[in-house]
C-alpha cells in the first residue's frame, strides 16, 4: 500500500515537472495542475495511511484518524483551484496580447 501510494506521488510529480518545463502554456498549466494534485495527495498522506479508523475520539478508541491533514488539504485544494483558474485566464490573455502560446512570447517560425 505505502509503496503504491508513494509511487503514485512520485510519478505525478515527475510528470508535472516534465510538463511545467514545456514551452507552451497549455502543457505548463497541465503540469501545474498535476503537481497541485500530487501535493494535495501528499498533504493527505501526512496523517499516515490507515483503514477503518474512527474520526471521532471516544474513550473506547485509542487510535483515530488525524483530522488536521483533511482540513489542510481542503484549504490547499481551494487555493490551488483559484490559482489554476487564474493562470488559465492569464494564458488566454497572453495568447491574445502576444499572439502566441509560447511562454516566452516567441512567435511561430513560418513553415519552410
Amino acid at each position: 500500500m505505502e509503496w503504491l501510494v508513494s509511487t503514485c506521488f512520485g510519478v505525478m510529480i515527475a510528470c508535472g515537472v516534465y510538463l511545467v518545463l514545456r514551452a507552451r502554456t497549455f502543457p505548463v498549466i497541465l503540469g501545474l495542475t498535476l503537481m497541485g494534485y500530487a501535493v494535495n495527495l501528499f498533504l493527505f498522506l501526512t496523517g499516515r495511511l490507515h483503514t477503518n479508523l474512527p474520526d471521532i475520539i471516544s474513550s473506547s478508541q485509542t487510535r483515530y484518524a488525524d483530522p488536521l491533514p483533511q482540513a489542510l488539504v481542503l484549504t490547499a485544494i481551494v487555493i490551488g483551484f483559484a490559482m489554476i483558474a487564474f493562470v488559465v485566464v492569464l494564458s488566454l490573455r497572453a495568447l491574445g496580447e502576444l499572439d502566441t502560446d509560447h511562454v516566452d512570447g516567441h512567435k511561430e517560425k513560418p513553415p519552410s
Binding site: 511545467v20 505548463v28 501545474l32 497541485g36 500530487a38 490551488g80 490559482m83 511562454v103
Partner: peptide
C-alpha cells in the same frame, strides 16, 4: 507560474 510551483 514560478510562484505556483513555489506554492506546491
Amino acid at each position: 507560474m514560478l510562484n505556483l510551483v513555489g506554492s506546491s
